[in-house]
Amino acid sequence: MSQLTSEEVSDPVAVERSVVEWAAEVLEEPATAADNFLDLGGHSLLAIELNQRVSDAYGVELDLQVLFEKSLGATAASVMEDLNSRTKNG
């Protein structure tokens, strides 16, 4: 996994692309932002692996409820919200 630039961390499109790509890698299935993690065969152990990638790259944790109940795009939006919140708070 490559290091992300500060522009990529603050770019919602780049965050979404990263989350979708990492989900596809851990699931070993093609994925899009409209796909649901569980519908693609995801489960808790794969969610932990995906969460680790997000944490390593962005320093935030996935909201697993969003990951399991909504699309990968919504999951990426949740990551962006956490990044924006972290930036504002410190």
Rank of each mutant, 00 (worst) to 15 (best):
V20W: 10
L4T: 05
E49F: 00
V54K: 04
S6D: 15
T75P: 03
E7H: 04
A77M: 05
L45H: 02
L45T: 02
T5R: 07
V20D: 15
E29W: 02
A57W: 06
A24H: 06
S85N: 13
S6G: 05
G41F: 01
S44K: 03
T87Q: 13
V15H: 15
V9I: 15
A31R: 04
Y58T: 12
A77L: 08
E28L: 06
V15Q: 14
A33K: 05
L40W: 08
D63Q: 09
V15Y: 14
Q52S: 09
G42E: 06
E29K: 11
S71H: 12
L67R: 12
V19S: 04
V60E: 13
E8R: 08
E69Q: 12
T32L: 01
S2C: 04
S6K: 10
E8F: 02
E61F: 12
H43A: 04
E69I: 00
A31Y: 07
N51V: 06
L64Y: 15
V19I: 05
S78I: 03
A24D: 09
A57E: 14
H43S: 04
Q52K: 11
L27D: 06
V13P: 05
L67G: 11
E69H: 11
S55I: 03
A77R: 08
K70H: 13
N36Y: 01
D63I: 04
A74M: 07
F37L: 11
E28W: 03
S10N: 09
E61P: 08
D11A: 08
G73E: 06
F37C: 07
A14P: 07
M80I: 01
